[in-house]
Amino acid sequence: MISIRRADERGRANFGWLHSRHSFSFGSYYDPAQMGFSRLRVINDDAVAAGAGFDTHGHRDMEIISYVLEGCIAHKDSSGNEEVLSAGEFQLMSAGSGIYHSEYNPSSSKPLKFLQIWIEPNAIGGKPGYQQQNFGRAPGLTLVVSPDGAEGSLTIKQDACLYQLWLGQGEGAELALAPGRKAWVQLVEGKLSVNGERLAPGDGAALSDEERLSFSATQPVRALVFDLP
């Protein structure tokens, strides 16, 4: 079964310095029919103006993934991590028992665009954690996040995996799903067919009771693929 969340159906937020589209209920956007999918709770498509950003704020008991699409993020947190993430990099912050952080666009002229993703953990509390890595642009599926750090991936506190998908025009890929698993596909750019359903940039696809995901690109594709409990 496949359900498509079209890009123009997502919630909106506009604070001047921040333009955001919400795949699921977040902040002032509330839709009881869109409260997440499996353990995936947030996908925010954020555009941050030059020199602006999120002031210091707190999180706890959430696995927070940031994927930089354009520009850079300047990150600073209460665990002593102070890093800059460039386009193509993934960050996984395990909030654990509690962490404070800020995120800024350090450029004076260029915008920052990134996906902010929240996944509910399978264990609460514990020491906060920070991981960051660029996984390149290898064609096909590349494992980015997993519960055991397989294949050099970032380690998450949940029985979930995240893949990045790069395909050239006319290329395809497949991913097998174990019985009972669910999947979410978020298209960043290009035109993609997932099990026969066509996606445009910003679209998301929720899949359940599927044994396999079959991807086909009619234009060069960048996407994220979540394998969820």
Score class of each variant (00 low, 15 high):
201 P>K: 14
173 A>V: 00
191 K>Y: 00
43 I>A: 09
228 L>A: 02
91 Q>P: 05
75 H>G: 00
134 N>T: 02
114 F>Y: 13
79 S>T: 15
9 E>Y: 02
18 L>C: 09
204 G>A: 08
118 W>N: 09
166 W>M: 13
109 S>T: 13
165 L>T: 07
40 L>R: 04
3 S>D: 06
144 V>R: 09
128 P>F: 03
101 H>S: 06
158 Q>T: 08
107 S>V: 08
21 R>Q: 13
35 M>E: 06
110 K>L: 13
139 P>F: 07
214 S>F: 01
24 F>R: 10
110 K>D: 13
210 E>S: 11
228 L>P: 05
66 S>K: 12
75 H>E: 02
87 A>C: 05
70 E>S: 08
19 H>Y: 09
139 P>K: 11
120 E>M: 14
192 L>P: 05
70 E>Y: 04
205 A>R: 06
194 V>G: 11
157 K>T: 14
135 F>N: 10
78 S>E: 03
146 S>T: 04
224 L>M: 09
8 D>W: 01
199 L>S: 03
97 S>M: 14
129 G>T: 15
106 P>H: 01
125 G>A: 03
115 L>I: 11
93 M>A: 12
136 G>F: 13
78 S>H: 08
188 V>C: 05
120 E>C: 00
108 S>R: 15
51 G>C: 10
161 C>A: 11
227 D>M: 02
88 G>M: 07
65 I>M: 06
49 A>M: 13
228 L>K: 05
226 F>P: 14
55 D>N: 07
166 W>C: 14
8 D>T: 13
29 Y>Q: 11
148 D>C: 06
44 N>I: 02
154 L>D: 02
163 Y>R: 00
9 E>F: 04
183 A>K: 08
122 N>A: 02
123 A>S: 14
50 A>N: 12
155 T>W: 01
11 G>F: 05
47 A>M: 15
136 G>Q: 11
127 K>S: 06
97 S>N: 15
71 G>N: 09
72 C>T: 13
26 F>W: 05
20 S>A: 15
193 S>V: 07
